[in-house]
Structures are given as C-alpha cells and as structure tokens.
C-alpha cells in the first residue's frame, strides 16, 4: 500500500494552487485558498474537514461546476488536460468521461420524468454518438447489475420514485462510472442515506473504483469512515489543506493539532470508557482569514508566531505534509503519547 514516490501522479488527478472565491452580496467570499491535491489511479483519497472548510467548493471548483460568477483559479490536470483551462463546451465533453461526480442527495439527482434505464443509457449516449439506443440499454442493464441492483434488467423501466435512497445512490454510481472515468469525485455520497446502507454504498464505491483503476476523491467529515476505506487523506481547514498523507501516517503519526482534534472528537465503540472530545471553538471558513495560521485561535499549541506567520504545507516525511509552524513539536509529543 505504501511506497516511495506516492505523491507522484501518473494518471489520476493533479490539482495545483486551486482557489475558489464566491461572489455574494457584491463581496468576494474566499472559500478555497491555494489547494494542492493528488489522486492516484485506483486509490481512494479522503478529503476531510469540518462543515464550511471548503470541501465541496474544492471538488466542484476543480470540475468547473460552480455557479457563474464564482472565480476559480489554479490547475486541475486529468489525462494531460487542465480542466480549468477549457472552454465550457470543451469541459462538458470531459465531464462524465474523464472525471465524474456523485452528489450527496440521490433523491433529487435523478430526473423524475425519465426511467432509470433511460438515465443510465443517457450517460453513455452523451459521450458515444455511435452507440445505438438498444446497445445503450443493454449496457445500462449491465451497469445496474454491477452496482448491485437486484433484477437489474427488469428495473430499467422503473422510475426513480420506485427506488429507495440506497438504490438510487447505486444508480448514481452506475451513471458516474458508466464511461470508466479516470477520476471520480464523491461529495459526501452517504450522508443523505439510511445509516444501515451507508457502509454498503461506500464499499461498493471504493471496490468499483479500485477494480477499474479510477481514482476516487471521497469527501466526508466522518473520520471513522476514512480509516476503513481510504488510501490517502487530506485534512482541510478554512480553505486549505493543513495535513495530508497516507492513512497510516495520518492516523498514527499525525502532526497537526487540528487533525489530532478531529481524531479525538471521533466517538469510538472499540474503547469502553472513551470520551470523544470536541475541538474547542467553532469551525471557520476561509472568509476573513488574513494573517497567521487560521487554526491558531482554537489551537492549544499556538505560539506567538502562529498569529502572525502563514504556515506553508511542508513535507515532514516523504508523502506526509503538514502546514503547522510547530509540527515537529506536536509530532514529538504525539510519538511520546503513543509509546
């Protein structure tokens, strides 16, 4: 699972210096401030962070899916093409083919007036004009079977309202993976679902992506989920990545106070008398951050310099980056604690 040179992207997705600035009430609202991200083919990258940290803004931004008026800068390379440099018509030809996305709410992501079969077939037809509608239908049946819909072919002619939430999210996954994209983004794909099916859907998603060598960006604020399915983790705070690395690095050698806070806040059923400990203070977005570390006001490690100097994201070890001026101290303390 681990190895040297893990941050080098061959195919996958390579995002550099992404910024997203919303426009609201005539004012600029920064949401993402210089984000770097690498998604390896067939691997799962979890993007975690509290609400408002800019996770959705980042993933929608790199696919060019934000509302008009939003300013997005930086690069997002997929298969040798920078998505952010494309005209909207050219970008449309890449979406669904090279990169795809699964949204949070499957109840509203399907058009109520068309059958599920039509909508899966459409995902194929949009990118392959040579396909006959009969071929598309046959492929749609296969795709639905692949995402675990029972009696898939018989359900092609059913309408979305005849599917449960979990089944609809399976349909959305079938649609997203229809053209075997290099990268799939899933923005909290299970939060809108019944707790009982969340794990199944997540497993399906990660299994299929691994199987077909699709790199997966899994947006979530559930660190418990991350441990089980992700290969790499990137932790976001106030529109920036504050720590990133492999799952093992992040869980056992985490060096950012925010990551540690997030982990301490996860309820654990495996430890009998474990008290989850929320991070003091409230989460903040990128808006209004001017100088110093954005986490400093909530950080128990904060020193003078943290309030004035911007911490750059630096590799503590190969493949493990931290944006904290006191990372070494924090890491050392963590090591002592776990020993």
């Amino acid at each position: 699972m681990m190895g040297p040179g893990i941050t080098r992207t061959t195919d996958g997705l390579r995002v550099r210096d992404l910024t997203v600035t919303f426009r609201a009430d005539g004012r600029d609202v920064p949401a993402v401030r210089g984000l770097d991200l690498d998604v390896r083919p067939g691997k799962v990258l979890a993007l975690v962070g509290e609400s408002g940290s800019g996770k959705s803004a980042s993933v929608l931004g790199m696919l060019g899916l934000l509302p008009p008026g939003t300013r997005t800068t930086g690069t997002a390379m997929v298969n040798g093409v920078d998505l952010l440099s494309l005209s909207s018509a050219k970008l449309r030809r890449r979406l669904g083919k090279d990169v795809a996305i699964v949204f949070q709410d499957p109840m509203t992501s399907l058009n109520p007036v068309h059958t599920v079969g039509q909508q899966v077939a459409e995902a194929l037809l949009v990118h392959d004009q040579g396909l006959s509608s009969r071929q598309a239908r046959a492929r749609a049946g296969e795709l639905l079977a692949r995402v675990g819909i029972p009696a898939a072919v018989r359900r092609l002619d059913d309408y979305p309202h005849q599917f449960s939430g979990g089944m609809r999210q399976r349909v959305m996954i079938a649609i997203a993976l229809a053209n075997s994209p290099s990268v799939l983004v899933a923005d909290e794909p299970t939060t809108a679902l019944d707790v009982t099916v969340q794990a199944q859907i997540l497993e399906l998603l990660t299994d299929l992506c691994r199987e077909q060598q699709t790199g997966l960006v899994l947006v979530t604020h559930d660190l418990g989920v991350v441990a089980g399915v992700a290969d790499d983790v990137a932790v976001m705070y106030a529109g920036r990545i504050v720590e990133r690395g492999t799952v093992d690095e992040l869980f056992y050698r985490n060096s950012h106070p925010y990551t540690q806070g997030l982990l301490a806040a996860v309820p654990r059923i495996d430890l009998a008398d474990y008290e989850p400990e929320p991070i003091p203070g409230t989460s903040r977005s990128a808006a209004g951050v001017d100088v110093g570390c954005s986490f400093a006001p909530r950080c128990s490690w904060a020193a003078e310099t943290c309030l004035t100097d911007d911490p750059p994201l630096q590799d503590l070890r190969p493949g493990h980056g931290v944006a904290c001026l006191r990372a070494e101290t924090v890491a050392a303390a963590q090591e002592r604690k776990s020993r």
Binding site: L65, L95, G96, F103, S109, L110, A178
Partner: peptide
C-alpha cells in the same frame, strides 16, 4: 434542481438538458 447539475456533470449539452430534462418537467 440537483438533477440538472447532475446532467451537467455527466457532460450533457445545454440543448440536451433543455430538451430532455427541462421541457418534459
């Protein structure tokens, strides 16, 4: 509505979205 955003995300053209998804609704 989300399904329009979802159509953009699968790469459907504007004409397709208008004719197949907006007008029928």
């Amino acid at each position: 509505q989300d399904f329009v955003q979802a159509q953009v995300a699968i790469g459907a053209s504007d004409v397709r979205i208008i004719v197949k998804h907006l007008i029928p609704n």
